Simulated scan of single mutants.
Amino acid sequence: MNNAVRELMDLFDLEQLENNLFRGQSQANGQRSVFGGLVAGQALLAASRTVQEDRPVHSLHAYFLRPGDFNAPIVYDVDRIRDGKSFTTRRVNAIQHGRPIFSLASSYQVVEEGASHQAEMPEVPGPDGLESDEAIRIKLVERLPEQYRKDFLTERPVEFRPVTPTDPISPDPKAPIREVWFRVVDKVDANPMTHRALLAYCSDFGLMGTAMLPHGMNFWQPNVQCASIDHAMWFHNDFKIDEWLLYRSDSPFAGGSRGMNFGSIYRQDGTLVASVAQEGLIRLHRSDSPAE
C-alpha cells in the first residue's frame, strides 16, 4: 500500500476506550492546527461504530469550536441519542486537553425505496489527461516561502485533478466556482462506513477556498485568517473513495468575514453521491496587524 494511504488508514483506525469512547491520532499537515476534515471524518467514524451496519449514515451537521492540537490525540465521546425503528441519531464531542474542539450530530436510516431524482453532473472533462495537483505543486514550490515548501511537496494520500487549474499562490480573481476530480491514490479495503468517513475527510479540502476565488486571496497570505466554522453533508448513494469522484463547489455569498460554500460530489458515471455545505471564517487583517 502507498505509504501516505497507509498513514491515512492508520488515522482512521480508531482505538475504542469504552462503549461510547474512542481515540484517534492527530496529524500535522502544514497548517496551524489539525485539519478540520480529519476531525470530521474521525468523529463520523466514531459515531458510526455505535450504529447497526444496515443503517448507513445519511447526514451530518458539525461545528468547529476550537483549533485542534496536532501534537495530541483526540478523544471522541459518542452520545447514543436515539435508536428508532427507521432512524438512528448520534452526537459526538471531540475533546483535547479536557475541552471540546468539535461537535457533530449524525443521522442514520434503514435502506428504503422511494421517489428519486438528482441534479445532473456538470459537463466537464474526465480526470484522464488533466494535470494532477502534485505536478502543479512541483512547478509552484519555488515561489513559496521557505517554511512552507516541505509540507507543500509532502506525498499525499488523496490525488486532486482540477478541471480549471488556478495559481494558488497568486490567484487572479475569478467566479466562485471550482470543479476538481479526486480519489485516494491506492486501494481502500474497508467497509462502506469507512468510505463515508473518508469522504467527509476529503470534502473539507479546498471547499472554503471557493469563497476566496472572487477576491484573489490565498491561505498563505499573512494578513488572511481562515478557519472552518461549520460543516454539513448529506450522503445520497454508494461510492468508493479510491475511484474518481467529481467535486463541484460554488460560493453564493461572502460577507461579515464569512464565506458560504456548497458542494456536490458525483461518481464518474454521473451519480450524485453527496452534497456539502460549509461556512468559513475569512478575516482580512491589516498588513501591519498579524492575525490572532
Rank of each mutant, 00 (worst) to 15 (best):
M1R: 11
N3K: 12
D10T: 04
F12R: 03
E18W: 04
N19H: 10
N20L: 01
Q25V: 00
N29M: 12
G30C: 11
S33K: 06
V34S: 08
V34G: 09
V34T: 15
F35I: 06
G37A: 05
A40C: 13
A40Q: 10
Q42A: 10
A46G: 09
A46R: 12
A47T: 00
S48W: 03
S48L: 06
Q52P: 03
S59A: 14
G68T: 06
N71L: 10
A72R: 15
A72Q: 13
I74K: 02
I74W: 02
Y76P: 04
V78R: 07
D79A: 03
R80F: 00
I81N: 10
R82W: 08
G84P: 00
K85F: 06
F87Q: 10
F87W: 11
T88S: 15
R90N: 12
R90M: 12
V92L: 09
N93S: 15
A94G: 15
H97Q: 15
G98F: 04
R99D: 02
S103V: 12
Y108W: 09
V111M: 08
G114R: 10
H117R: 09
Q118S: 14
A119G: 07
I136Y: 08
K139N: 12
E142A: 15
R143A: 11
P145Q: 07
T154Q: 13
R156C: 00
F160A: 03
F160T: 02
P162Y: 04
P162F: 07
P162R: 05
V163K: 06
P165F: 08
P176S: 11
I177D: 04
I177M: 02
E179K: 15
V180D: 01
F182W: 05
R183L: 05
D186F: 09
N191E: 13
P192K: 08
M193T: 15
R196Y: 01
R196H: 02
L198C: 11
F205A: 08
L207T: 08
A211C: 12
M212C: 02
L213P: 00
H215Y: 11
V224R: 06
Q225G: 01
A232P: 03
E243A: 09
S249L: 11
P252R: 14
A254I: 04
G256T: 13
S257Q: 13
G259Q: 10
N261Y: 04
F262L: 13
F262W: 04
G263Y: 03
G263P: 05
R267K: 15
D269Y: 07
T271S: 15
V273I: 14
V273Y: 02
A274P: 05
V276W: 01
E279H: 08
G280H: 00
G280I: 01
H285K: 05
R286Q: 12
D288G: 05
P290W: 01
P290A: 00
E292F: 05
